[in-house]
Write a protein that binds this DNA or RNA. Structure first.
Lengths: 207, 207, 207, 207
DNA sequence: AATGAATGAGCGTTCATTCAT
DNA sequence: GATGAATGAACGCTCATTCAT
């Protein structure tokens, strides 16, 4: 196997050098480092070293360090949106659907906590255009949940004296802040927290 | 009014060169810039230029750029803690006290949104020792609210099947995320949002 | 020859922009400037300007300004040690070997006066760890000479009533201070001073 | 006793705040710090803090940080010169006088090692004019010793085949390098080293 | 596809010195 | 005599990005 002068492997899959393709490896490593140290305290050199590639390789796949951040966001938004749609569109009663959606968003947020932490810490560092894109996607996500609440309000299952918008902001605030306290090795699993949070949401909407 | 060659006022109180002492002026300017651009995208040069002083003056009062961030946190934590204590210790019924505390923390957070935004975006950039101090203070704050919920649970005013800890994390998550959507010129004032959020909290705790 | 807007050569080997590789060029330039102006009065900017590269290039090869100093030391210590070993290990009589070693160390010190001047002026500015390394290497050097003197004392060629250690400190003191008075264009050459100093050393050791 | 807001004594002789006048205290403190840390790594702030005065006070007595260094030199040169004159002008035989002078210069150098260390490390940082003054004084000192050697050479007490100049440079080199190895708590006292060094000098001059 | 030397602008910080009080 | 807030120029160093190979 070829070895460069610096002793790092240049080809083939060495031990610890997973078979994952380079772009995915870079994204995974960047996600971990950004979550651990913050976006701006992580240098491109650190990322490529940890991924076992060179700067040139990184700039071959990603236009900039910024781009790496954007791709992390895009990936997580894509995943979450897909999951949510399927939960919201079942033919269960509206309160059960809202509960399922709420519990699921909490569980998946807990499962991908690094992404959420990076998201809320670093989105302001993104280029304004990309920030706008990300925000728009997130808004579509929120609106799907708001529609669910309004459906329940119209049918009398939920109280109608609270703005659905406000309830969405209330609930997603709680979800997005999981990163400050939730620990994988804590008392509750992500699914358990999801059930509890969904219970609290539903309780606050009881007529 | 006299103006030096560099264009800065050398005597009298010009616009932006107010009579406010230099340290306070630096803190106010830094808060605004950190909220607008982020801590790491704000240079010390920008801060001192905006405050109308030189770097030397800033380093006379603050040990580092980090220190500026810490002082912003310390100030807001001190204020919030004081307000909260007085609301939690009144002799009203426990549900009224929790409502008052919850509404107040939302209203003051909305009133000092810059501080909160900076706080959750940039705390990881603070020196670990200072981070620990800040976290400890914030924990004391949360624990006062948890005690209030537990008091209500023991007296049967609140449902007892939900962990008070979890409810605190749920609610404060919502509060701490105000910065992502609340706007001073939006539909609702900070006090109005406070009342709505407190209502939702109390509703979710109904037995 | 092409010249960029900044006035630096972009192709071909200009005066001062020789074909010597960048790290060597930096080391040579730094040695000269440190000797002329002192380590701390020489800025990194001066060094890179004189070497015709940018700061980034320098920091690509050297970890710090300190490192540059250390490399200067390491290089001269390596050279001196090698020369000395070969002179000390010949099979001539011990007094001739000591004379040869003494004369050679003076001559090579005179030939590389800049390094010696920098060495004794600036070693205290080096990182403590690197200082320790340098001191250890220098001690090995002194001990080889001490062994030579002790050998002569045991065989009766040298007087035995003076501590070999002290004689080494005495002699090397004289050598290391060449920088304060020796001039390349002075009355005596480095080799001539070497012979005289070695004579004085041997005379002082006569039984 | 008056105490400033920062808690430092502002008047009277506190414990550790010797009765020595301010300029002397500053000089003593500066000498210690320069020897310990080097001239350029010692800030004016450190000096005035250690001396228990303020910057204003220091600049009242000394024109600059440079001045402090110069005064340290001037003081030590004045002292050494005075001692040497009296030893060189006795009416003992010339070899005894040279021995006495040599032993004395070593002993006083050992007794004031800090000054010597600073001297040879930092003289190049002095303003050229002051450097010239210091060098001139030092040259007068060396010339007195050279005259002594030449006197002995003329009278046949010392070998005449070695340049007196060179012998002076040889010997003073050894003396000025005491700082790199002599320790107050080492095997030999300054006086003992003085006797040994003088012995070696005289031995090397035997016809 | 990938390298890694080199760029260049900018960063946070230091510090001897000044001066109104 | 003495203060200490403020200056301002310089410093060592970092880093995302480029480009000849």
């Amino acid at each position: 196997m070829a070895r460069a002068a610096n002793g790092r492997t240049t080809a083939g899959a060495a031990v610890g050098d997973s078979v994952e393709p380079v772009p995915q490896r870079l994204l995974a490593v960047a996600t971990r480092l950004f979550a651990e140290q913050g976006f701006e305290m992580t240098s491109v050199q650190q990322i490529v070293d940890a991924a076992g590639v060179t700067k040139g390789a990184m700039y071959h796949y990603f236009g900039s360090k910024d781009d790496l951040l954007y791709e992390i966001y895009a990936r997580v938004l894509r995943d979450q949106h897909a999951r949510m749609e399927s939960a919201a569109d079942s033919d269960a009663p509206v309160d059960e659907r809202l509960h399922a959606v709420a519990a699921d968003v909490v569980a998946t947020t807990a499962a991908n906590l690094d992404d959420t932490v990076i998201f809320f810490r670093s989105m302001h560092l993104l280029h304004p255009d990309k920030q706008a894109e990300v925000r728009a996607e997130r808004r579509r996500y929120h609106e799907r949940v708001r529609a669910l609440i309004e459906e329940g309000q119209r049918s009398g299952v939920f109280r109608a004296d609270k703005s659905a918008d406000l309830v969405v902001d209330f609930f997603f605030g709680a979800v997005h802040h999981l990163g400050t306290w939730f620990r994988k090795d804590g008392k509750l699993t992500g699914e358990e927290v999801g059930k509890e949070f969904a219970d609290l949401l539903l309780a606050s909407l009881r007529p």
